[in-house]
């Protein structure tokens, strides 16, 4: 993984963190806000796992396992909210 790519990913992660904090302060409906917040947080999760942890270079099994985990987590939380 090139350093420039890592730097770009880090910048995106910081921008997403600020976006999440801003969205949380908006006066939208609670469930809509939660969907946006969780979606952005899952993007950050995937950024860290695929780029910082180099999962991008790993076997497809590990990529699929992480994607499956975040998908299930997202769906269950949204259903329960």
């Amino acid at each position: 993984m090139k350093k420039k790519i890592l730097l770009k990913v880090w910048i995106v992660l910081i921008v997403l963190t600020v976006s999440v904090a801003l969205v949380a302060n908006l006066t939208l409906s609670i469930s809509f806000t939660a969907i946006i917040i969780l979606s952005l947080s899952i993007l950050k999760f995937l950024g860290v796992s695929f780029y910082f942890m180099e999962l991008k270079k790993a076997h497809v099994f590990w990529k699929a396992a992480v994607l499956m985990y975040v998908f299930l987590f997202f769906v269950i939380i949204i259903i329960l909210l």
Binding site: V20, A24, A34, I37, S41, F45, V48, F73
Partner: peptide
């Protein structure tokens, strides 16, 4: 490094659920 990143991953799930939603 993977263990350290795991701490990031856990926090990225904790922060939105506990602090925001």
């Amino acid at each position: 490094a993977a263990f350290w990143h795991m701490c990031d991953l856990i926090w990225l799930l904790l922060f939105p659920v506990v602090y925001l939603i």
